[in-house]
Write a protein that binds this DNA or RNA. Structure first.
Lengths: 235, 235
DNA sequence: ACCTGAACACCGTTCAAGT
DNA sequence: ACCTGAACACCGTTCAAGT
């Protein structure tokens, strides 16, 4: 019992147990986020989910913020890199695919979307996303340094729109169908005092309908228009 | 001593004490946010700042989230409404003023900026901001419902850019000068492995410089260009 | 190296009570 | 109506220890 000098069972000595890993922890955090909302994602909650003592997680992450940053970065990274690099397809189509794909995946985890713009976008997957956007915009004819500025503007629009849309969702449960969300918004805006917010009340139907794929795409196209064919104030 | 039947001291009976108010609570929260960062803003912390028991705040706000929502909405509302409505000045100039002013004020409270896109923008001041943007864009020649969509895109860009920029700041202390922030970014990007992030590393200087008024304005102009003169895919 | 038990210094919120 | 004391059910993180 006292001899731990014996040869390693596998190639490397397995250490005491090796139950956990970064992946397993992040996966548990995401599960918690989706099932019980943002405030259920605690170190203690994740540990309980994994059947482990809370402080076990500190072997893999320095603090809770690091877990969340890693989680967000992984979600950002889940896109089809090959399709984006396929030079045979028009660049605008590929930007659409990137942006819409990102929106779909992030809205599937509304709790995570709230964390999107709360920390610097400096994770490895976020940087890769930037690389791909820069390359796409360079293909579209922009000079390298303009492409970089333009890529940042695009990221701001894409992530900002997703975050703002996700803010209306209940993070504890999957997003209701678009039609339902629009109806709820319409009711809210129509109830506003028309004397104070005349345009908002009058345009309630229009504003209510901003949520959704179609409008996300419309805004994306307008931003791309502005970036690709700079106006008189151009850089 | 036992008779509390006497006539009210002032016009309305003052109640037991009336120490607190919504304004005082929000102001204390903001002070805490600026001086000691986001995580110092707790119900208990605010109460201590005000010399009051923690649960006293529940007379004025239903929960902590409501305090933060009100705080953000107030910050959004601090702009010069008259200057924006001044029809004598070009609309683009007024949009700039609105956006840049918002950026300056929100970056002065980096901790608050992180909360910007975490909750729906449905506070009274946020709605007023929307009204003003819609009016400006209608002046710029957009149809009413297009102006509403365009206004939303603008808000997404403006708030998204501010949030992303604020995410790099230490919320516990005032923002360092722009040059210093750019230098710190440049060092970070230049240190990236060039084989994995070729464009990011090569463009480190450019990316580092994205932060700042000039670039915020450049992006704003590009977005406006796209919105005001819709391209072939226009709505 | 990896995990546990126990503890520290906190949280938000609720309840019953005092004025 | 407005505020307090006390309590409940939590937090994130650290430390010393076991293997």
């Amino acid at each position: 019992m006292e001899s731990d000098q014996r040869a390693p069972a596998t190639r490397r000595r397995p250490g005491p147990r090796r139950i956990l890993s970064e992946e397993v922890i992040v996966a548990a955090a995401l599960r918690l986020l989706d099932e019980r909302g943002a405030e259920a994602v605690s170190i203690r909650g994740i540990a309980a989910e994994l059947g482990v003592a809370p402080n076990a997680l500190y072997t893999y992450f320095p603090d809770k913020a690091a877990v969340l940053r890693t989680l967000v970065d992984r979600l950002i990274g889940e896109h089809d890199a090959e399709a984006l690099a396929d030079v045979g397809r028009p660049w605008r189509e590929r930007v659409h695919e990137l942006a819409l794909g990102l929106r779909t995946r992030l809205l599937a985890h509304p709790g995570a979307a709230a964390l999107l713009l709360g920390a610097p976008m400096d994770g490895p997957q976020a940087l890769l996303l930037g690389e791909r956007l820069f390359a796409l915009l360079a293909e579209a004819g922009l000079d390298d340094d303009v492409a970089i500025h333009a890529g940042y503007v695009l990221i701001v629009y894409i992530l900002g729109a997703i975050a703002l849309e996700a803010a209306e969702l209940d993070p504890a449960r999957p997003a209701p169908p678009e039609a339902e969300r629009i109806a709820a918004r319409r009711a809210g805006f129509a109830a506003l005092p028309a004397d104070r917010y005349p345009r908002t009340a009058a345009g309630a139907d229009t504003i209510a309908a901003y949520i959704g794929t179609g409008q996300f795409r419309w805004g994306l196209d307008r931003v791309l228009d502005g970036l690709i064919r700079p106006g008189p104030a151009g850089r």
